[in-house]
Each structure stands twice: as C-alpha cells, then as structure tokens.
Design a protein around this nucleic acid. Structure first.
Lengths: 334, 334
DNA sequence: TTGAAAGCGCTAACAT
DNA sequence: ATGTTAGCGCTTTCAA
C-alpha cells in the first residue's frame, strides 16, 4: 500500500506538502504541485480513508436511511437513493446505506462512531421516533418527508398539500362534482406517514372550497383489493366521475376495472394520478398526473446537507411545487 | 467525544483491556468485563470508526455497486440491496452504496483507499469492464450475476439456464408446441447481460430436445411495445399457445392484450413468467412463474463475501436452483 | 512557499 | 488476566 510519506519521499518534498497539494488548503508553487501530482500518479497513491477520517474527524460519508417497508412504492425510493448517491459524489461524499431495520439505534451508532458526517432520513413519519435523537445531536441531517413538528429540522419534500389541491382543481374545472380518492395502503395512514395525510388535507380543503364531494379509500393495491373498493365507491356515490389515485399499485387495476365495467376514460370517468412520471406514461391510458420528483428530492436533500456540513444556514423546509401534466385520462364531466 | 482512554480511566483499567473487552480477542475476567461495560454505558462510548479502521486496517464496510439502469426491474435491485444491507449488519458490516455511474473508477477508489473491505457487484455483464480490476486486486469480491469467464471470481445468481429449461418443460408437458418468449428490453441483450442470454440458451436447448418451436422477441415493456410484438408473433406463428415472459413491465400488458383479443388464459393460451413472486401473485391473472430469489441472492452474496474476508475458501459459483410454481395462468394446450 | 512534528483514537504485539 | 507501548496514515498547527 502506497502512503503519503512514500509519495513525499518520491517527490522530494515533505509529507505536509503532499497533504496540502491534495487538499488545496494552502498555496503550492506550480513546480512542486506538478512534481507531487506526478509522483501520485506514478505510485498509484490513494489516500487512506481511515487515517484521513481520524486526523480530520471527517469521514466524507453521508448516511442514508431507507425504509424497508413493502407497502411503499419501491422504484421511487430507489430513484431517490440513486440521486442521493450520485449527487453526494459530486460533493466528494460517499453514501452509507442504512435500512430502517435498526431504527433509532442506527442513528446513534452512526453519529457516535463518526462513521458518517451527516445523514438523510427517508420515509419520515409524522411523529418519527428518530427525531428526538436527531435534535439531540449536532450532526447535520436532512429529512425527505415532513414530520408534524419541523422545528429545528431541515426537510425536503414534494408539497403534497398543494398536490392534492391541484388535482381537485383540475377535476373541478372539468366539471366533476363527486370525486373518489384511491389512497395508499391502510398501513401507510395508520403509521401517519406525512405525505399521505397531507395530500388528503389538500384534497379535502380545496374540495370544500370548490363545493365538491370527496370519498377517500385507502387501498392495498392489486386487482382484488381495487375491485372491492371500486364497487363500494360506486355503490355509495354512483355519480362519482373523478378519481384521484395515490397508489402506484392501484393504477392499472383501476383502469382495467373501469374498462371492464364499460366506463370509458376520459369520456365517462376522469383519472388523475399522483405517481412517478414513468408510471403515468406507461399505463394503459396515458395518465394526467402530478409526478413525484424523486431525483429532485434526492438532489436537494444532498445539497442542503452539504451546506449544513459546511456550516451554511439553510431554509428549514423546502416544499417542491407540484406540477400537473394533462394527458389523456381526464376530460369534461359527462 | 468519549474516547477509549476515557473509558479505561473511568473503569480503572488500561486502554488495551477496554479494547479487548470490545473485541473479545482475549480472555477477560468477569469482574473487569462488567466494570468496563458499565463505564461504556455510563459514558455513552462509541468506538471511533476512523481510528479503528486505521489501526486495524479493516473498515467493516462492504461496498455495493448497483447499476443505475432504467431498463432493469428496479424492485428486484432494491430487494437485493436491502437484503445485502441487513445481512451485512448481522456480520458487523455496513454497506456503502456505489452507483454504476463511476464505473471501474469506483472500484479503484474504494479498494485503493481502504474505504471498504470488500465489494459486491450487481448487474454484471458477460464481459464486464470491472472484472480485470477485481482480478488484479486482493480485495475480496462477489458478483451477483454471471460473466462469461468466471475464473478467479465468486458469483451468485439464479440458474437462469435451468430456469429457461424449466419453463419450456412445463409448457411442453401441457402439450404446447409453439412458444414465444417475451424478453427484456433490446438494450439488455445488446449489452450482453448474462442472465437474459442464459435464459434464452436454456429455453432454446430444451425446446430443441423436446421438439418445440421458439420465437424470441425482446420487449421494452409497456402497452404499445407489447401490442406491436404480440401482433407480430401471432402473424408469424398463429399457432403459438405458450408464452414465457421475462420482463416485468410486459406482464400486465400481455395479459390485457390477450384478453382484449378474446384469448382466454389458460384455456386458449398459457403464460409462464420469470419474475418476482409479488408480480406473479398481484397480476390480473395469478401467474405460473419461476420467481427471482432476490433476498436469497443478496444474502448469499454477503455470506460468501464475509467468508472470503475471513480467509475461508468459497465455491466459485453458486447457481440457485429455480423453482416453478404453478398458478392459474397455464393449462393444457387447446 | 515549505518543513517538522504533534497528535487523532484505536489495535495488537510484547511484557508481566 | 492485564498493562505498556509502538505504530496505523493523515491533518494541521507552529516554525522557518
């Protein structure tokens, strides 16, 4: 293994000079810099991560805590994780993958050991048990998602309240009066995941303002669950002509069932989805949708985290504005 | 920050004693162990990861290189990644997430810096450019997937050749003579990803032995792509009565299109899928399938990697035997 | 612009 | 069964 000392010897300079060439923390003459860089290349030198971490008390690692729930839509999580990893690299950070399994304990382990300089938490619950620990440490962190109390926390998320409102407005504008919301799995609401509840709040309050009636039904996803729910909805509110779907697993089943019942989309029924763009585009009907900006969320989380690590202040909460893209699944109410 | 020295002082023992209590690498009397453990708890001590890595030249980190392709089925990747992370934790390792973006360079960076003790590579291509680097280093590694030349490498994968054969056998036994294979996206074949090609080899060779005719069509997934391909297949071989699908994105479109054409599953047409169990079960028809053992692959990869780190020999290649589960999408040929 | 040297917190011989 | 101590490879003062 090649050490910094060997590079120094080979280049005919001191160890500190090599170190400073690497870090750029003090001026180096062009000549020595070139010499050192050449030695580094010739010897194939790579700084030792452990030594660096020990001496500088910075690991250049960001911890990313991903949930291991089966009821969340996995591709979104993955897209965020990948965006986090690639953005982190552009700032010189690597990403440590923590699964939710360890829970709050993982937070302690990572902060305590100096394994990571900072952390990003995904899938935050309204009253998340990891939050007290985060508030109690000086380790920078960013949440993807919004807890009930955001004081002292930095959060990044899609503005789901506005998203819900936007979907309702679109349907209202098209003349729909009775709308149904196909939501996430019941467990998602039970554990009070912020985004699901906020969407609902946005939907309900705008619906009230605009005088629409709303039926909300959580849904496990899949054909059977969706079939049962659809039947119930149409029994309770036969006049329902607009659907808002916030559950990727329910999208295709819903479309198939409507078709089977002879309800044409968008002539008889309109469907707005809250889902990744890919799902909206690849569905059997191109869906009018508000897309979930997974990449943007991952990127923003890292940018904010890096700013915090570097001691720059950041806004406490970033809510990304939703954008509704009209495709072919919505039209005027019958 | 609490250091080992402080714990030692607090417990009235030497630093090495504390270290040995932690590592268990030498016998400690019950009395001192208890005392030390209590001091650790009282002071809230966590060993510093950097110092530990420097002194022991072991980081207790495993690097996991995931592809960032959009044409692979993401949930499987995620499931593997999570299985890797949780299994790694049970062995005392954390997982560093590397995206494919950096390519071979990442291998060099991680091995050179001692950031990770070992690495797992996913989505290996038949002639992967990262392999020379792996062979040239003494850092333990395990591949998930099978390259063309496995010499000197440890690999874990589903036996896709046997998987292909198994699907054909099942259809042959039911009397089907003309079968069509709906494959992965063309790009997957173009980059010579091992699993897709091996499946095809398994299908073709068994089909030849059993006297079946096979049509293979790569498919991007989605309704439009699937529609075009299905039309072509039924034009070319109107007698096609068995389908093997190895593309999660094409499963539902295929089923919907068959339905629309009035071809009943399984009465008129049989469909076998190669996909995660969840997809097979949640589809609009419960699919006869060979499931992709994502968890098992992740787990096995870690077990083998840890064995290698500890200097134990491991079999070069582990091919997990496929299991075909009969559900309701296959039946006797018409 | 550069060098010398003191740690960073831990592990693992070597002693006892 | 426990203590002493010499590093591990790097960063960063302090000096020049």
């Amino acid at each position: 293994m090649v050490t910094l000392a060997e590079v120094a010897r080979h280049a005919g300079v001191s160890a500190s000079t090599v170190s400073y060439v690497l870090s750029g923390k003090r001026p180096i003459s062009a000549a020595t810099r070139l010499q050192v860089e050449q030695s580094i290349r010739e010897l194939g030198y790579h700084p030792n991560a452990g030594a660096r971490a020990l001496a500088s008390s910075r690991s250049n690692i960001i911890a990313l805590m991903v949930p291991l729930r089966t009821d969340m839509y996995v591709p979104v999580m993955m897209e965020i994780a990948i965006a986090v990893a690639t953005t982190a690299r552009t700032h010189g950070y690597d990403v440590l993958l923590l699964t939710g399994e360890e829970g709050p304990e993982a937070v302690r382990r990572v902060t305590g050991s100096g394994l990571a300089d900072a952390m990003i938490l995904m899938d935050v619950e309204l009253d998340d048990e990891r939050l007290p620990l985060l508030r109690g440490t000086d380790q920078p962190s960013v949440l993807i998602g919004l807890p009930a109390d955001t004081s002292g926390l930095t959060c990044v998320d899609l503005d789901f309240r506005a998203t819900g409102a936007l979907c309702v407005e679109h349907l209202a504008m098209l003349g729909h009066r009775d709308i149904a919301v196909i939501g996430e799995a019941p467990a998602v609401y039970e554990r009070h995941t912020g985004f699901a509840e906020r969407t609902l709040v946005g939907i309900r309050s705008r619906a009230r303002e605009l005088g629409l009636r709303v039926l909300h039904r959580p849904c496990e996803g899949g054909y059977e669950a969706m079939a049962a729910i659809l039947t119930r909805i149409l029994d309770e509110r036969p006049g329902t002509s607009g659907f808002v779907v916030q559950n990727e697993q329910a999208v295709e089943p819903l479309l198939a069932l409507l078709r089977r019942q002879g309800r044409a989309v968008p002539e008889d029924v309109s469907v707005v989805a809250i889902c990744p763009e890919q799902v909206a585009v690849q569905a059997s009907v191109r869906l009018t949708s508000v897309s979930i900006p997974a990449q943007e969320m991952g990127r923003q989380a890292v940018e904010r985290l890096v700013a915090k690590i570097d001691g720059h202040a950041t806004d406490e909460v970033l809510l990304i504005a939703p954008e509704l893209t009209v495709r072919t699944s919505t039209g005027s109410a019958p």
